[in-house]
Design a protein around this nucleic acid. Structure first.
Lengths: 200, 200, 200, 200
DNA sequence: TACTAATCGAGACGGTACGTCGCGTCTTACG
DNA sequence: CGTAAGACGCGACGTACCGTCTCGATTAGTA
């Protein structure tokens, strides 16, 4: 593909330096104290260069997380549905755990107040994971593990909801036992007792 | 409570003016653009007076919401458990709906990044509602509507979780049908099929 | 006049620090490289404090020169008109000589491009000196040294003009001999050969 | 001049576009707001092209004025010395009058602070005019209109000085009457009353 | 006529300073 | 004393231009 003259003049090395500096500073002082000014200084880059390519510090952090995330587009499928769901949920839990938390939580907090950032966050980080999640559940429907008319959006709310609930309220992420309890409850609710369908 | 001579010389009229100004400004420009500086100006109050009594703008807004909320400490009990749960959840949904959302959502966002504010938010706004919620569920256990060993913390996660989930992801609050689906699912999961207990 | 409550809250110590820093920086690096940012840093003062009280760096420098100038409002009068004029002109020449030149020349340069600054410069620094100059010439008219209908504005142009001429063209200030030549010429032109008046 | 193969590959059309853009922008927004960046944009030219051929915006403007000026190298000589001087002075006055003033005044202002630009300005714009001026005066000495030992440098100062004086002080250029008064005075001072020479 | 190197347009880049905003503290005068 | 008013030191903001630096794409003189 001869994209030739269409090539952006953007400096890849600056881009990398900016993301690296962002990651360092976030780790050192947290999302809150993160500053475009400081990123530029640490990265050895003009502020302009940051503003040229990102609209806000949130967008920089978003790209950082986006790069960091190894997106396995195919859902895990060990044959054990509960285990697979647990591993999907665990990925999110780990993104919200202290040492790495700064960028993730800060980003969610900022996105709450900034619709445009929220949209980006949803499109680039969240929706792919939702898709993966639903893909796994759909497969479970195919194998008859789940009721074929189970409402997958409800399942999504029920399984991911608690994580955000606890995040927002500083309640600490659910431990292994609690997580298993959640999954068990939800699967039970979605598993077809043949005679009455889940939603009236 | 004979606090007598100990009575604070704090000016109640300033306090009210501050909260009123906060409410107006929040409504006009949103939590994000809210500023201690602007509150003081609008309220005709010195900045010192605000800083003397509140540690941050979040704390002011928290007090505003705290005053606004009519906390029915006793849970609703119409005899219809699903309906009662729906009305409890609806209160929170309304706090997160556009016109009034600014203070509520902004506060949650800020609390995500400010542990102290998070603690205050939890203690003064959240926990009373959690208590009310659990109280109603416990009554349902007493009447046999719910399994006596149902895990109420899990129920809490399952019912409130989705709201925060959707809040954080700008997904829009669940509509009436979805909400009912949620409640139905959760109640089904908590209702005892006598042979296997909810947690393994 | 008990101006009491009317007293400005302005910090005199900051004002002095700002002027001192300005003077130092001007001496060290010249008017051109002088920067509000640097003044603030050197003075240990917020930039806001400078912008609050002065509209531009030119205004700060103007105030600096204004304070530095010992304005003898009464003109010198040794009885020797030429000598008195020479001493008046010398004051201006010294303000435009290298070591002290930075502020003075820079200010004139900036005022050339900034009408508001030009007005201030004129009112606060220039016009008092013009008044003094004219006062001395008027006294010379009283004593008959000068023609009573000599045009003092023309005299002003003729005597001060060359200084600005040379300043603008980097020609160097007139030396003692040239200055005396100038004064001699001008006085001769203003001294009445009784029959024909100076202006037609 | 066999510069032959050495011929510059410089683009004349770019040069003209740059000068034209400079002239327009100067007229529209004044020398002060003039910017290399803006010149390049308006001229449809890369910034590099400007920096390759001129060291500063002052140099561009200088070239602009240099081209615009129709330098009559031979002084006017109508036989009426006062009239000839007036027409020489008028050329400078017009260069400093509002509509065209921007480039001229700005250039002088900048040159005050930039010795290199000052030198260029002097050599290319000023000195030719001084030469012309002196040439005319010398001719007047030949015809006996002026004292043969009149100091032409003093004459220069006395006649051009007031213009810069007024320019620097935003005093407005001398009107016709004042200009005539100046010329009259100066000529009187330089005309030989046979018994006492002009300088003591 | 084709080659080849200087020049061109475009504009990203690392910087410096700008002028503004809001912070949280401090100072002053009043009630 | 608490208060209204607001100046203060500070830090970050987002912008404007600077002068330098790649990038192909002309383009003009030479081979």
């Amino acid at each position: 593909m001869p994209q030739g003259s269409n090539a952006s003049r953007r400096s890849e090395s600056s881009r990398r330096a900016i993301l690296a500096a962002t990651e360092e500073l976030c780790r050192e002082s947290g999302y809150r104290r993160l500053t475009i000014e400081a990123i530029a200084a640490r990265a050895g880059v003009g502020k302009t260069t940051i503003y040229r390519w990102w609209p806000s510090k949130g967008a920089v952090v978003l790209e950082l997380l986006d790069e960091a995330a190894v997106v396995g587009t195919a859902p895990p499928d060990t044959g054990d549905l509960a285990a697979d769901l647990r591993s999907l949920l665990t990925e999110v839990i780990e993104l919200s755990t202290p040492q790495d938390s700064a960028p993730g939580v800060g980003l969610v907090a900022e996105a709450l107040q900034d619709p445009e950032l929220g949209r980006e966050l949803r499109e680039r980080l969240i929706e792919p994971r939702i898709a993966t999640f639903k893909q796994r559940l759909r497969r479970a429907q195919d194998t008859g593990e789940l009721s074929p008319d189970a409402d997958l959006d409800v399942a999504l709310d029920l399984l991911y909801g608690p994580l955000y609930h606890r995040l927002a309220l500083h309640l600490g992420m659910p431990d292994r036992a609690h997580l298993d309890a959640l999954i068990t409850h939800v699967l039970r609710a979605l598993t077809p007792p043949p005679e009455h369908p889940p939603t009236p």
